[in-house]
């Protein structure tokens, strides 16, 4: 059997994201203890753990919002070299603005609530240097459509939208520049179950259509299981187990993972 050029393939030997021995302390609290992770192009890595396990800190470090005490972080992109934790503030900002998208749990962190929804998406394009109004409008509309946001409301400010709609605006903003890496920090927390399902469907469709590399953090095992190819379980700042999603959920090895998987209300 031979592979033809038009057959999509996940076969690759080089990870897009490589983080090694990332540690971070906030005073006496050790938030991350030597966390390492690799994510391959088109793959979804789910990070799961209890509150305070360090998963959001790790995600913020991947978004270059935190500078760890030790460790390295590289992205295998043509114009991105070296340990990204060593970049200066300007280089970090430009990298995050153009190559990394993020959806926060709290939309207030990711959106300008009094600006229009399309303006929020346009902001990302403006940072990347787009200065044509018609192009901004068109690209914002397309990104909002892709995140299944009703475009007749594209000029409504997020402050007037529901939580689920705000998350869609965040998602549109994150994907507007077709980032190499999409980070999702508890994207469905606080949404009711039906809206959660819609947002998850959108994420899954986007991932399948665009093969976006994603890292998703959640304490909801259902969300992680729905979206992830591989899973990393964190506890007290450490990775206690990682592997393929089905493998981790069906045959958890670590006692903490077993406790998580079998936990029921």
């Amino acid at each position: 059997m031979s592979l033809t050029m038009d057959e999509p393939t996940l076969v690759t030997t080089r990870p897009l994201l490589t983080a090694r021995d990332v540690s971070k302390a906030y005073g006496p609290v050790q938030a991350l203890r030597g966390v390492s992770a690799t994510v391959y192009p088109g793959e979804v890595l789910g990070i799961v753990g209890e509150s305070g396990s360090g998963k959001s800190t790790f995600l913020r470090a991947l978004n270059l919002e935190e500078t760890p005490d030790t460790g390295s972080y590289t992205l295998d992109l043509p114009d991105v070299q070296g340990n990204l934790f060593d970049l200066d503030r300007y280089a970090r900002r430009m990298l995050c603005a153009t190559r990394i998208g993020i959806v926060y749990q709290n939309p207030h962190l990711g959106l300008l609530m009094s600006h229009s929804s399309s303006g929020n998406v346009a902001e990302r394009l403006l940072v990347a240097g787009e200065r044509r109004f018609a192009v901004l409008r068109d690209k914002a509309q397309r990104a909002l459509e892709a995140s299944e946001f009703p475009t007749e409301r594209m000029d409504a400010p997020p402050a007037e939208l529901s939580g689920g709609m705000q998350q869609r605006v965040q998602l549109a903003k994150a994907i507007a520049l077709e980032p190499a890496l999409l980070l999702l920090d508890e994207p469905t927390t606080g949404l009711d179950v039906s809206v959660q399902a819609l947002v998850l469907d959108t994420l899954k469709r986007l991932q399948q259509e665009r093969r976006i590399t994603m890292v998703i953090v959640s304490h909801d095992l259902g969300v992680i299981r729905t979206l992830s190819d591989r899973v990393m379980v964190m506890r007290r700042g450490e990775v206690v187990e990682q592997g393929l999603a089905d493998q981790v959920f069906q045959d958890p090895q670590h006692a903490y993972t077993q406790q998580l998987v079998h936990a029921k209300l």
Binding site: H115, E123, D155
Partner: peptide, 8 residues
């Protein structure tokens, strides 16, 4: 973005 909002 301010100008964008005004035009919108």
């Amino acid at each position: 973005l301010q100008l964008y909002e005004q035009i919108v």
